[in-house]
């Protein structure tokens, strides 16, 4: 996939160009493109003067980074302890079945991405599902359909 990499230089310019900025730069790239395109990783390595292997190592170590394009609608299921004991795994399974994908992947039509997240600190609303940054609390198994339709 070809990308408009013009936005990269703006991201690089936000930080001092050294190793310490690596994670911040990758986060901004992730925010911009919703994943880390290969070309962007290569450009990052070059600009920050960090070996490509190290960039890749960091990019695959941390959960926050994805390496494939993500869907229009990103559904994140909180699987923190509280959400778990209040049935988050059941909600997860529902969503997985409905979308026919496992958590951590994207539907083929690039409509939905299903992800899990370890606690978003909204435990009083458990179980919590976040759809494109909007929080849904006290989610029930039967809410799966509603979540998929939500904006």
């Amino acid at each position: 996939m070809k990308h408009n990499l013009d936005k990269l230089s703006a991201i690089f310019n936000r930080y001092p160009q050294n190793r310490e900025s690596l994670i911040a730069v990758l986060q901004d790239i992730q925010k911009e493109y919703h994943y880390l395109p290969e070309e962007a990783l290569q450009a990052t390595a070059k600009t920050l003067d960090v070996p490509l292997s190290k960039v890749f190592s960091v990019a695959t170590f941390y959960n926050a980074f994805s390496h494939y394009p993500r869907g229009e609608k990103i559904i994140r299921i909180c699987v923190g302890t509280t959400c778990h004991i209040r049935g988050a795994h059941l909600v997860q399974e529902q969503l997985e079945n409905r979308l026919n994908i496992k958590a951590g992947s994207t539907t083929k039509d690039l409509k939905y991405t299903l992800e899990t997240v370890n606690c978003v600190g909204a435990c009083s609303q458990a179980p919590v599902v976040i759809v494109n940054n909007k929080y849904y609390g006290h989610v029930k198994v039967s809410d799966a359909k509603k979540l998929l339709r939500s904006k």
Binding site: L41, P51, L52, S53, K54, V55, F56, S57, T60, F61
Partner: peptide, 19 residues
């Protein structure tokens, strides 16, 4: 050289070349 590195983490970690 920094040609290879560990990739991923935990039980699924592996040694691989970049990308």
């Amino acid at each position: 050289f920094h040609a290879i590195s560990t990739v991923g983490r935990g039980h699924g970690k592996e040694v691989a070349p970049p990308l």
